[in-house]
Design a protein around this nucleic acid. Structure first.
Ligand SMILES: [Mn+2]
Ligand SMILES: [Mn+2]
Ligand SMILES: [Zn+2]
Ligand SMILES: [Zn+2]
Lengths: 146, 146
DNA sequence: AAACTTGTTGCAAATGATTCTCATAATAAG
DNA sequence: CTTATTATGAGAATCATTTGCAACAAGTTT
């Protein structure tokens, strides 16, 4: 069994919830994807098994609370997620023009943040750093058109 | 005239938009508040002047594009904003238990980020760093109840 | 393995924040 | 003041997400 399955099974058992066929399929679909995804995208991957969109929506918060996925970027009106296991924390660079998302390592900033957390007596569970602006490609385009 | 009014007037004029009574009132309401606010909260502050919620929603993106306010936290299903002028960039620490939001200075992290931006040739327009977890108070409560 | 208890699902209807339509009003310019 | 154009209120429309409910499936107990 994969690590994420074991973690989910454990999370569910701890609170008297059941590991159903639907939930297992949705979990695996989430770990199939290596980019950001929203509820509908996830549903696309499992609807062949007659799983409803409502069930996807009901499973998403379970996966979040189990520490398996997290809210990634909120662009537009849909929530977008990404899986966590095997995907270390990173910075999201969002181009406001072409909507591209780049990622860079967050580790160099971690010590400073952990220091501050200690000073605040704050228990960190998730760090989300996203930076909006213009990517190099769009910056070039803007300059051209001037 | 306040600095934010001048900046807004200038922004509007540059693109042939009009500085209306409604927009001026909404802008000032936004700078009246020193916490995060959503569209409805802003509307509460201006509806005495018979300003509709739709107009508030139409003005919000203008204020964002003018660099006067920014999306602060997207909690729950509502967008929450904060004014920028006179409110330097900061880190948001969100307690997942009591929903409290603390803020700390971001300046110590800026040099590292600006360096990375330079390497990526990325033009930063907004940095948003939010950290979820447990505040010291809730951490204490949790320990007690064990 | 059958019975039982409790949580789960699909479906469709409900919700709620945000956006849009359109007829009327306000603004900036000349 | 007149004109050209943008803005506004009211309410309808959107659309992602949530819910109610009756049928089902998972885990547990005989
Ligand atoms: Mn990511
Ligand atoms: Mn803030
Ligand atoms: Zn771009
Ligand atoms: Zn707290």
């Amino acid at each position: 069994m994969q690590e994420h399955e074991a973690q989910f099974r454990n999370y569910l058992k701890n609170r008297g919830l059941k590991l159903t066929r639907s939930r297992a399929l949705i979990l695996n679909a989430a770990f199939t994807m290596h980019e950001h995804f929203d509820a509908e995208k996830l549903h696309d991957l499992v609807k062949h098994a007659n799983i409803s969109l409502a069930t996807v929506y009901r499973t998403l918060p379970l996966l979040v609370n189990a520490g398996l996925i997290q809210l990634a970027v909120h662009s537009g009106r849909r929530d977008r997620f990404e899986h966590i296991l095997g995907h270390p924390q990173h910075v999201h660079w969002l181009c406001e023009n072409c909507k591209a998302v780049m990622e860079t390592d967050l580790s160099s900033l971690l010590p400073a943040l952990e220091n501050e957390a200690k000073a605040l007596k704050f228990d960190i569970s998730q760090i989300s750093l996203s930076i909006k602006g213009l990517c190099w490609k769009c910056k070039a385009d803007v300059n051209e058109s001037q």
